[in-house]
Simulated assay, not measured.
Amino acid sequence: MTIPVDDVIGAALTTVAADLFTVPVGKVRNILQVQACNVDGTDDVDVTLQWTDATSADAVTRLAYQVAVAAKDARTLLAGPMVLCAGDKLQALASADGDAELTVTFYDEDVV
């Protein structure tokens, strides 16, 4: 049995939904945590996190919608882990360009 190794990505958010990643062919991606950090010193920012389902014509499902993150604060956006399949995408956006940064912790497993 192979022990999965966690990986982490980070991204600065804009006001347009952007792909954080697309799950590679032959893999499932186990998302352990998604955290949004407000890097603005004075203003709150709203963060939206969503996934597109490759098996359903890239239908969008919001996981967190316009969640307010106070200035100089952070919030977890998932209540627990989730699994995405090959071709699925995780996307995010914020109410102000550059005011929020997102960190995603995950690991991949081969589809058997």
Rank of each mutant, 00 (worst) to 15 (best):
T55N: 12
V104D: 03
V112S: 05
Q35F: 05
A68E: 14
D46I: 06
D6W: 00
D58P: 07
N38V: 04
D46P: 02
T55H: 05
D88F: 14
W51R: 13
L84M: 02
V83D: 06
V23M: 08
M82W: 01
R29A: 03
L32R: 13
R75V: 13
D7K: 14
D108K: 07
E109F: 03
L77H: 11
T52G: 06
A92R: 12
T22A: 02
A57W: 09
S95A: 14
D6M: 08
R29C: 10
L93A: 14
F106V: 02
Y107I: 00
F21S: 07
T14Y: 05
L102H: 11
V111Q: 13
V34T: 07
K72E: 04
P24H: 00
V45K: 09
A59L: 15
V111R: 09
R75N: 15
G10N: 12
V34R: 01
I31E: 06
V23Y: 02
T22M: 01
M1Y: 09
A11N: 10
I9W: 00
V60A: 12
A64I: 01
T55A: 15
V25R: 01
V45H: 04
D97R: 04
L93H: 13
A59M: 11
A64W: 00
A70Q: 14
K72M: 09
T15K: 04
A71Y: 12
T48H: 12
V5C: 07
T52D: 09
A100G: 07
Y107R: 01
L13A: 08
L20M: 05
A71K: 14
V111I: 14
T76Y: 12
G80M: 14
D99Q: 03
V39H: 10
L78S: 10
A11D: 08
D97Q: 04
V47K: 05
Q66L: 10
D99L: 07
R29D: 00
N38F: 01
I9G: 04
L84T: 01
